[in-house]
Write a protein that binds this DNA or RNA. Structure first.
Lengths: 233, 233
DNA sequence: AACCCTAATGGCACTGCGTGCCGTTGAGCA
DNA sequence: TGCTCAACGGCACGCAGTGCCATTAGGGTT
């Protein structure tokens, strides 16, 4: 009595149906989110998720590589899309708007299903294993951004360092905005605010072509001193 | 015939011996590093590690929470020490040298046993599971730094954002220096170079107390414009 | 010296994740 | 109607991690 009705449904969508696969996937995600919320992550088994979705345990692992994957966004395809954004850009295009476009690709991933994103956010906030997994995913984004920036900063002084710092900073800032939006329940009228913050971060990127000095803060301090002398006149 | 001689040794160091515990721990780490290198991470079992160390499987899990932990540095105590550095600092102490001191605490963790650190670095570079775990650990540092910076930036404009960006940037920069040192085989004469890079990053931190504007890049651009006008006179 | 107390250990059994294998089933096609 | 192939379910296996408990050895006590 694991789910006669459900398994009948499952049987009805056999074959090479793309919609069938997508539907099974959605069912599994829905079941996972519901059970994680009801019984906690640790006390929910893959067997339980599969049964709740009216699917065999083995089938679960044909859709998700692990139990944690069942509630993770599809970072894999997001990374691919971001890489395409970078690769499609003209080498001379300014970095700031390019980074902005790449970032909004990530935002799209979450706006597709805000309610699901919020549920995931709550879970990744509470469960250690999921938080660590999220950290790993974020780091993949950081590496991708850093790699792209490194190519663009190459040749300038401290190119490696600037790429590492800028990539990490951009990803961290975007996560801050994204998490604030999700913590607020992902309101529809908050998307623009989130996008606005993204833009703000992009605006903070050092303008290129890179100035000879390279050290922006040193430049700022030098100019600040000049301004101070000016004011005192 | 799992290890008669070794188990005799193990038996000889029973009781409440602190040195005994430390020795068992070192043996387990050594066995893990060796086996991971010889047979790969995936093909090495906890049973194998325990047997190689002349210890029961159950004992392994009394020293390490998981298989991955066997080759992870003790990030837990490092985080504690860093938090102590921050907490012990006077509130008015400039942030840059404080961050530098906190960073060097991390460096100490790796300089204690350079050879082991290099072996770990190679493994975390190759094995996906270990790399993800490393990402999670690094993120713990990032969160700690960000939390401390947030307290110091509180009140200023965009304090949250500046803390998030600065924390992520500092950690990323330090990791870049640290990984470069480890990739070179952790030469003794490279420690100072690594420490020098740490200092360079600390110097790049915005000076405090925080200026009213808060947005450093905007400030830099504004001052740059002023400087441009000055030059044209 | 006999004794107890406690820390450390090792074995055992159990749950659950993840995987390989294989027989079955149903949709699409000739 | 029969063939093909993708998806599915079940089964068994290895292994990680945990709870439980008996055993052992060292330190302190009387």
């Amino acid at each position: 009595m694991t789910g006669d009705g459900a398994s009948t449904v499952a049987r009805a969508r056999r074959g090479r149906s793309v919609e069938g696969r997508a539907q099974v996937r959605r069912d599994l995600v829905a079941a996972a989110v519901r059970l994680f919320g009801e019984q906690g992550y640790g006390d929910t088994t893959v067997d339980g998720i599969a049964a709740a979705a009216g699917v065999g345990r083995r089938t679960f692992f044909r859709y998700f590589r692990s139990k944690e994957d069942a509630i993770s966004p599809d970072h894999g395809s997001a990374l691919t899309r971001i890489a395409e954004v970078f690769d499609a850009a003209h080498p001379t295009e300014p970095t700031a708007p390019l980074v902005l476009r790449a970032s909004e690709t990530v935002l799209d991933l979450y706006t597709e299903d805000p309610a699901l994103s919020v549920a995931r956010f709550r879970l990744t906030h509470d469960v250690d294993a999921l938080r660590d997994r999220e950290s790993a995913s974020v780091d993949h984004y950081r590496r991708l951004f850093t790699r792209q920036l490194r190519a663009r900063f190459a040749g300038g002084s401290d190119g490696e360092l600037r790429a590492a710092v800028t990539g990490a900073a951009v990803v961290a800032a975007h996560n801050l905005a994204l998490r604030a939006w999700l913590a607020a329940g992902a309101p529809a009228d908050g998307i623009d605010a989130c996008r606005e913050r993204f833009r703000k971060v992009a605006d903070m990127l050092p303008v290129e072509p890179i100035r000879p000095a390279g050290d922006l803060h040193a430049l700022a301090r030098r100019l600040e001193a000049v301004a101070g002398r000016l004011e005192r006149r």
